[in-house]
Structures are given as C-alpha cells and as structure tokens.
Design a protein around this nucleic acid. Sequence first.
RNA 1: GCCGCGGUGGCGGAACUGGCAGACGCGCAAGACUUAAAAUCUUGUGAUGUUUAACAUCGUGAGGGUUCGAUUCCCUCCCGCGGCACCA
Length: 909
Amino acid sequence: MDDAKGKRLTSFGLEFERLEKFWQKRWESENLYQAKDQDKKTKKYVLVEFPYPSGSGLHVGHAFTMTGADVYARKARMAGENVLFPMGWDAFGLPTENYAIAMGKNPQDVTKRNTDTFRRQMKKMAFSFDWSREINTTAPDYYRWTQWIFIKLFKQGLAYKKAMPINWCPDCKIGLANEEVIDGCCERCGAQVFRRKLNQWIVRITDYADRLVGGLETTDFVDKVKAAQVNWVGKSEGARIKFPISNPPAGRAGFQFPNGEDHIEVFTTRPDTLWGATFMVIAPEHPIVALLLSSKLKNQSSKRKKVRDYVEKARNKSDLERTDLAKEKTGVFTGLYAINPASKKKIPVWVSDFVLESYGTGAIMAVPAHDERDWQFAKKFVLPIIPVIKPEENWDFNQGAYTRVDQGKIINSDFINGFAPDEAIEKVISWLEAEGVGQRTSNYHLRDWIFSRQHYWGEPIPMVYCEKCAINHNFQFPTRLPDGQVSNFQINSKKQIPKPQKESFEKLKKYAEKEKVDLKVLLDNPGWFPVPEDSLPVKLPRVDKYEPTKTGESPLANLPDWKKIKCPYCGQEAVRETDTMPNWAGSDWYYLAYCFAKRINNPKSKVQSPKSENIFKQSKNILKYWLPVDLYIGGDEHNTLHLLYSRFIYQFLYDLAVVPKEYPEPYYRRVSHGVILGNDGQRMSKSRGNVINPDDKWKQYGVDVLRTYLMFMGPFEATMAWNENALKGVERFLVRFKNLVENQAGFDNKENDQTKQLVHQLIAKVSADIDSFGYNTAIAAMMKTLNSILDKKLLLTKENWGNLIKLLAPFAPYLAEELWCRVLENEFSVHQQSWPTPQKRYLEAEKSTIIVQINGRLRGKIDIKNNILIDKDKIISLVEKNSVVKKHLSGKKIKKVIFIPKKLVNFVV
RNA sequence: GCCGCGGUGGCGGAACUGGCAGACGCGCAAGACUUAAAAUCUUGUGAUGUUUAACAUCGUGAGGGUUCGAUUCCCUCCCGCGGCACCA
C-alpha cells in the first residue's frame, strides 16, 4: 500500500513511546478509571492479587496476570458496568527485611522505593486500576485494622498463647508455620528445620473447618481450587473409642491418668475393624508417656528406661526424619495393656513415632491385617494379625495387609459378621454409643494457625502481658477440664476457692463482660490483655538492628522503652508482646479495605464516623454495595493458604456482624492464572538466566505489543513458554491494523453486507471470549478478520472501524486511543465508549454449509440457502444430485439417512 | 500411595452442549521487491500413496467399547505437570 507519505509504520517500540506518555498523562488527568461507590450501574468487583513489591520490580508474570485482569475490567467497564479494579501493596515480609539488614537501610524506606517503582511500571503497562483506592499493608492506618481483627479474635476466644513445638529455622531464626516448611526445609532459605518449643500466638482456625468446606458450595471457584481447599481441611469421619487400661500402675504415688480415667482414647475411620485391633500405639508425646516417665513413679525399671530413651530420641528427630515413609518402623512396649472393648482381649500398648501427637488423639488402635503401617509394625515386633474382613481373592496375611477393605464381608467380629463394611461401621458406632465407650466424630488435617513471627517487618501483635495479673489470675478451680476448656463458672462448686482468689475472679469476670472478652481466654492466658481498641494502631517503632535476637525473640524485644506499657487491666507496669504477625495477616482483609480505602488513607477526613465505631461498620453500605468480589484472579500457590486464611477471617468478621449478612463468603468466583516460563521452557529464575524483564520488552516493542502478545500466548490459565518470534507476529498484526485504519480513514466508505457480517460476527466472538478468558482466541479472531479485510480489499465505514478499535481497546489501549482520537477524529476517550453489541441480522449468513458424510466419512460440502435449511427432504434430494455424492452412492443401497438441521447429512449405506 | 489437571503438526495452540481435526500465530519452503540483506508482500505447508491436478488411505499418548459419526462420552493402561502424604 502507499508508503509515499512516509506514514507507514513497520514496528512500534521507541516510536510509540511518545504516544504512550501522552495518553497515559491524559488518562490520569481525567480520572478515567475511578469506581463510584453506590452508583446505580451494575457493580463489578474485579480483584487481582496484590503483589509483594520486591526490589526487582514488576515481573513478567505480574504483567501477564494483571493484563488478563485489566482486559476483563476494561471490557466490563465499556459494557456499562461500574467496575472496581483496585491495586495495593502486600509490603510486609522477609525479603524487604533481609535487604534492609544487608544494606543497613530501614524497611520503610525500602518499601517506599519499591512501591514507587511498581506503581510507575503498572501505569506504563496501562493497567486501569483505580489509584484513588491504593492501599499498603505496612501503613499504620491500614494495619491498625489488621491489629483490630486480632484483638477481636482474642476476645472471641479464637487466639491463645501456647508453648508449641514449632518449626524453627536456624538460619532465618524464625518460627515457621507447617505451610512454610517444604520437605523439612525452610521455604525461604532452604535450611533444615528442627523442632523447638516457643510461646506462640495460635489462632483457632480449626473451629471454622466445617464452614470453610461448606461455604465453598455458594462460590463459583474452579474445581481444582475447591478440591485444594477441601483437601487442605482434610475432614475424615469416624469414631473415638476408649480402651481401658488393664494394668494401671495403681497404688503408685502420684499416678493419675491425665483424663481422670484409666483409658486411652483413639480415633479411627474404620470402627468396623475394631475386632482386628491386636495392639495399640501411642505417640511419644502422648500424656500417658510423660506420666509413665514422671519422676513421681519410683520404680524405674529397665523397661521404663527403654521407653525414656526412645521418647528422647524421637523428640530430637526432625520432622523430615520422622515422616520418612521408607524407613523401618521403630517402637518400644510401654508395659501397659489395654482391653479391646469389643473382643475383650488384653492387647499391648506400644509407643512409636509413626503415630502423630497432633492428629486425632495421638493414639491408634492397630489393625495389622488391614493397614499397611500396622502390618509392618506387627511383623517387626511379632504381634498377632487377625483378619476381620474376608478378602475377595486368596490372601496370605503373612505377605502383607489386605487394604482393599471397602469391599468384602466382615468376619471374626461377633454381631457384625457377614455385613458389608459400611453397614458394619454404622452398627459398631451405635453399639459404641450405647455402651458409652465411644462416639461418632470427625477429624481434620487442618491445624490451628501459628500466628507469631519473631521478626521486625510485620504488624506488632497488639497484646500486653502483665506478670502480676498472670499470678493473680492463675485460678485453680475444679471447673477446669484437662483440655483447657472451662465447663462453667460456678464459684460455688464443691471445692471452695480461697477468698482473695474469689474476689479477683469476680473482678476479672466484670472486666470480661465490659470488654466483651471471652472469660475462657482470660483464664487460659493468664496475664494477657489486648491493648485498648482506641489506642490502635500499635505502631512499629524504628529500631537500629533488624536481626532477630539470639534467643529467638523479635528485634522489638531490644527496645525496653517501647516494651513498657501500663497493664490495661490493673494499670501497673506491664510489657508489650514483641512478636509480629505472619505475612498473611495483612492480605486477609485487603479486598474489604479497597472498598473504603478513602477512610483508611485519610482517617481524619469528614467521612470518619464516631471513634467508637469500627471502620467496617462505618462502611456498611459501601461493603454491601461492592461485596462479594465478583472475580478474584490469582495464582495456584495461593489456593490453599491465602484463600483459606482470608475466607476464615471473613467468616469470623461475618460472625461479628461487621460485614454484610447477605454474603457469607467474600469471593464469588476464583480464576487461577497461568505461569510464564522462560524461552527454554523452564521456570524463570536468575540462576538459569532465562528471566524476561517486561521493561526491556516494552522498550523494544511498545506496551500494546507486549500486552497483546501476553494475551495471545495461550489460554489464560495455562503454563506457557516465552517465544520472542511469536511476539513479532503480534507486532505485525498491530502494525497492519494501524496502517489499514490510516489508509481508509477520511474516506466516505460504503460497505456491503459481507463486511457488516464480518464485523458483527467478530463483535460477538470477542465479547464472548473475553467473558470466558479466551483471550487468545479473541485475538486470533481479530487477526482473522483483519486478514479477510486485507485479502478481499474490503472497505469499512468509520463506524465499523470504530467498532473494531473498541474491540482492540482492552488489549492495546494506547493504539486504540490513538486510532480513535487522532486518526478517526472521534471524541476522547475510546475507553469511555460503550462496548459494541452485535446485530442479530448480520450474525447469520444467507447460506450455510452442509456437511455431507457417507458412513460418517466426509465426502463433500454443499452451500444451501437459509430459507430451505430446515427442509429435510429438499436438502437430501439436493445433496443426492451432487456429483461427488452420486459417485460414492452409485451401486449402494441407502439404509438410513441422518439429518441434522443446518449441519450435516449422513448416508448410511 | 491419594487428589487435581493435562497428552492434538516442526513449535505455541484452536475445535461451542459428539458432527469439516489442525483456526490464529510462529517456523519452514518457493516467489515478488532489492545491487544485496533486513523489512514487507504473495503462495504453499499433518503424514503416506498414484504424484500434474484430483483423489484415496492413515492421523488427536496406547488398547478396547458406545454411536450413523468420537480430540470430545465410557473402561483399562502408559506418560507429563501441580498439590498432599506414616493423617489412623
């Protein structure tokens, strides 16, 4: 075409940079993308996970994910929806702290610099975020509310302090949650993790286990996300069964079972195999073991010494060693015997580290005939193996356990003999409950959430410890049960409490009522009080050293002045908690914060309601308007932890009635984005040298080419390798598009029906594809249409060029704006235009192609006019006249004709 | 071991609820333009066979099944990716 004017463009890149700057500035000055609270339009909340602003800037993975979200948001906005598409910073975290330590800078400054870089890059990428709602988890006005949530958790009895054997990373000098330990090593530094007991704040997420699973029903998460959540909670149903001890070391001074009764309780999913339980195994941490070894027991036999040695060894083992499947079973006999409540047989109690203290009751009934681990143990220590399910084939129980136990019939089991296992389970549970030796129950893999971190760069946990109160409140009542629960608060129980204690108990009770604190938590955590809510935030003080202390305490422990505080209860001198919160805390509720970001970022503004009201209640109407999040785009790596934690916190806030009662779940739809690999097909990493930096690419090709390429690479949810050549293909497409519009602009073009059909079919296709994240096929369709226009030398009217530009706008916003305003000379801005709607009359062609098959094999195609399309007989006779069909049909009998209107005719011969 | 996802040309990928397999892009080949190269444009491009056309046969990880018809549904198996894992 004509390049006489020298106007013709062959590539973007540098030449385009000027335009990008120009339009970026204009969009910003006109506040194009601000969402309006309470607007009458349909709201749509499009959320993309906010990044951790690392020092290395925006990653190409961020660029990919956010472009995908941006395309969706832009299209929705043009289609007339009130779109909330916000962005912020999840800025607390170890990398910043480590960098600060290494460079001697303070994390606040490092964070400021990093977020500035990220923001600049995102603006360059033309992401249509509503920057008026930007939030930062490290801003005191933000984490004030993160702390507030923690206080509420405490007051409701959902946070408690406990010495926990935690995963301790010797290099980072920090306690790690189970989730942060990968193959027994620290997720961040790779050092081997070992166990260490440390006082930690624990959050009782397990109380919400059933709701975290049940709530999924009302959401539209993709199946794999739901499955991941369900698996993580890991519910299994079964029964608890009590096994009485036949030879308690009775008469010995000080011996008393921890549960007050002389039995060991187990959890099993297969109560039907109870008759096959020939021994028991308890975890080395089981309370009975501690009791057996307690110094109060005088007779320290050699057997007892063996137990002591074994338990000692197990304690020093790392998790990695303990859970190594391949290793041989170890264990020792405790000297205790239990009575199998069903068979009444005396069975030995062993201790072994393959039984975990943290799951179930920390004790199992071993059924070696039908469980692989129990079988191995029985084989090694020569314990009896009794089959209780009849195998469907010949089975040698000396060779292994028969574990296909869902089929078969029960044997050797008294009144359940002959039943199928699932029936037998029901019968046994009824019997257990009737006899009072067991009950139906469920267990979860989900553990309570260790919430303390011994680090600087996190939200301070807003708690105070008062030693004097701790002494005064360490009430010894008979009402305290062994599991830490308090059954009732009757002072007038059998054992009288001494008078001073009684008085202080009454006082504490009053405090609990006034402050709305669960009395149970105060009793379980003597001396611990939340800071008063109106004194929040507990600001992170500046320190000189960011390293954790040698004792494993956070660096805040080095600040005596900061630590000192008056006890909120007694007013005397007390100390602050020096631990900080885990990374997840700030991201648990950030999607709520966007809704009322103005109130957070400017707490002194007039919109602030009375101080007594919390920000969630103040923003009730705004939350009701925006929630739930309509679409949440994020990575698979957050499908368990972040998603589960934030759903839990939301459900908790729901129970506090501070979020709208209409929405029991925060996120309606969850879509997980894909991953971009380097051009070698490997995960991008500095060590491989295959990292693609988006900065380089937009400098070379321009933002529009980069964005369009990212969306064209493949399905939004897939894993794809970078391919520089394909990037050039996209550039060709955009350049051709631009040149063609420029060539046709300014003419009074007349177009034919064929052209209109092309345009309207494309509108329908692109609209549908964007809605279903089929960005790659949307772009392919645009390419195809452009090729047709070029091939057939079609002319388009200004209106239809406008339509095509609108379709392109979500992908290539700069080019679209340039063509819309400068070339077509339309009014600013293309991004505020309404999304085109396809006209039905152009969607269907006059002719349809009918496929002709013979015996299901393609033999020809025939174009048929629409007006006779449904007329079966006419079409069949028409088809039979076709020469190719005639040839194939000659000399054959037609048995049957299959006719699908508008699609095909199939002759069966 | 368990759970989830996937396997289609030389490559990335397309194919709606079973109905033209390979859209679109890359790469490659030939040609045009050019002194030449790059860029751009045109044409071709799953395999095999008679080979000019046209046509035929095969072809969506392997094998089997359902169906007039299967990349799509069912069964068995193989391979890859992700997650969980001594969880009773």
